[in-house]
Design a protein around this nucleic acid. Structure first.
Lengths: 111, 111
DNA sequence: CATCTCCGTAAGTCATGACTTACCGTAAGT
DNA sequence: ACTTACGGTAAGTCATGACTTACGGAGATG
């Protein structure tokens, strides 16, 4: 029924637009918290909380550098997401094709 | 900055575990609402509301059949998701590789 | 037509979670 | 050692949204 709590946390983390904005911002490379907060209309602690959620979901990595903490996208997290989506995708396509087939057969029988 | 409200609605819809359970349930093929509600510990109206959210996010298709309404996964919705993830994925991998490279170069310089 | 099943909508309740300010560590610079 | 920048945590507020029950409409069945 569930693909595990990991995927669960991942999708929950991605559900928030601000967190996706953070991910987008990190696409070009690692950044410290202050830089991330400067681009967003929310307070720095709020950013910290979002980063925490993303990290616990396995989507971010942290590398302390002096007094700063550089956040970067975790390839493993994205990989898990893609794996999940690929599964849903394949099954859905197969199911869709089968349904379309059945539908076409039924229509052909009817007309 | 945003990939559009469509992707926004899609991720929001996927953020709820019950809705992902509905998607999982529909992977094998279209089902009417009563069947979907039977598998979940929530009321049927709650299921209807989730189905509405998923439909508006472009993730589900509806095909009325008499008094029933068959819900099925919308391939286009999943496709949009994959496209978005592919973009994030590619950029992140490139950024990660670049960062790792810089890190390795710095480490080599230091030692 | 009467009835029954299927299902969407409305209204209201309640939990979750996204923000705020205030505070406290930790590391670098003087 | 003192100060300053960075950033995580705590506590509290407030909006969002996930559920409930009650209701109404639309199609099948007698």
């Amino acid at each position: 029924m569930t693909y595990g709590d990991a995927i669960d946390a991942t999708f929950h983390a991605l559900g928030d637009p601000t967190r996706r904005a953070l991910l987008d911002r990190l696409r070009t490379g690692p950044l410290p918290v202050c830089d991330l907060a400067a681009d967003l209309p929310i307070s720095r602690p709020a950013v910290s909380q979002h980063l925490r959620v993303l990290s616990e979901a396995g989507l971010l990595l942290v590398t302390p550098q002096g007094t700063r903490r550089l956040y970067s996208i975790a390839p493993d997290g994205i990989a898990a997401l893609r794996t999940y989506l690929d599964t849903v995708w394949d099954d859905a396509l197969a199911g869709f094709a089968a349904a379309a087939h059945a539908q076409a057969a039924k229509a052909a029988r009817k007309e």
